[in-house]
């Protein structure tokens, strides 16, 4: 079984280390990974603004590149949410339906498909606060949601508990949105920026040194807010920790 690695545009352009960690981690775990060249974007920015016509070409390109793989893995809950729930600017062929059903967010893939619980090569001697993006939380359901009062569970925590030396802190509002929201971050920059600031301060007050997440887009936003306000936090993608990054 060959797994295609899909790397979101902002990770490709600005956070290649997240892509590298994802690829190396999957290889360490014995997965046959290919990275199809020529990737761009999943179409979410256009589709989330209602622009199906603008999304159609981007989605078609994504389907062309990835439609024939057994599985597609992405280190981004937000993009997987789009692909699974909203990839409908293109005709719903069997190929598109197959792709939508076989695209996994990295944590899901590790937790549910590979069923990994141990990362003996990984050690992260820091206090971390976990940020679940709204896509992973309320769409992919990789963790329990506070609004529903369900029995607590967390797939990313299950994975991180397999890392030596790591300590967790819990912010006061663990599943409050950080305010990124794609183009919301620029269209409503004041509210978005304030939400991001509140989010990083919440983690800081809980004693976090790092915020870890399965979504680099949220982290990019939070990192920008923290840096502007002088909040001394560091940000890291879960793939980097699981792949053995020490800092």
């Amino acid at each position: 079984m060959t797994v295609a690695l899909a790397i979101p545009c902002f990770i490709d352009a600005f956070f290649p280390e997240v892509g590298i960690a994802t690829l190396e981690l999957l290889e360490r775990l014995g997965v046959d990974v290919v990275y199809p060249q020529g990737q761009t974007c999943c179409g979410q920015p256009m589709a989330n603004n209602g622009c199906q016509s603008a999304a159609a070409g981007v989605e078609a390109h994504f389907v062309d590149l990835f439609g024939d793989f057994d599985a597609v893995v992405m280190p981004s809950g937000s993009c997987v949410h789009h692909l699974r729930e909203h990839l409908d600017a293109v005709p719903q062929t069997d190929r598109v339906r197959h792709l939508r059903a076989h695209t996994y967010e990295l944590v899901e893939y590790l937790h549910d498909v590979l069923k990994v619980s141990d990362f003996p090569w990984a050690e992260f001697p820091h206090k971390v606060g976990l940020h679940n993006s709204c896509g992973t939380l309320r769409s992919l359901r990789t963790a329990s949601m506070s609004e529903l009062g369900e029995t607590p569970f967390s797939k990313p925590m299950d994975l991180l508990r397999g890392v030596r030396g790591i300590a967790f802190v819990t912010p006061a509002r663990p599943d409050e949105c950080c305010g990124f929201g794609g183009t919301f971050s620029v269209a409503e920059d004041a509210v978005s920026g304030r939400m991001g600031l509140d989010k990083v301060r919440d983690h800081e007050q809980a004693g976090a040194e790092y915020i870890v997440s399965a979504d680099t887009s949220c982290l990019m936003h939070q990192q920008g807010c923290a840096k502007r306000a002088g909040v001394p936090l560091r940000f890291i993608h879960i793939a980097q920790i699981l792949n053995g990054a020490r800092a």
Binding site: A190, S192, G193
Partner: peptide
Amino acid sequence: SWGRDREVPAAPQESFAAWAARNR
């Protein structure tokens, strides 16, 4: 408007795609 409220991320030397083309 991104920069009104936050810093932009630092720019890496190369994209992931470029890294992958060399390494994989």
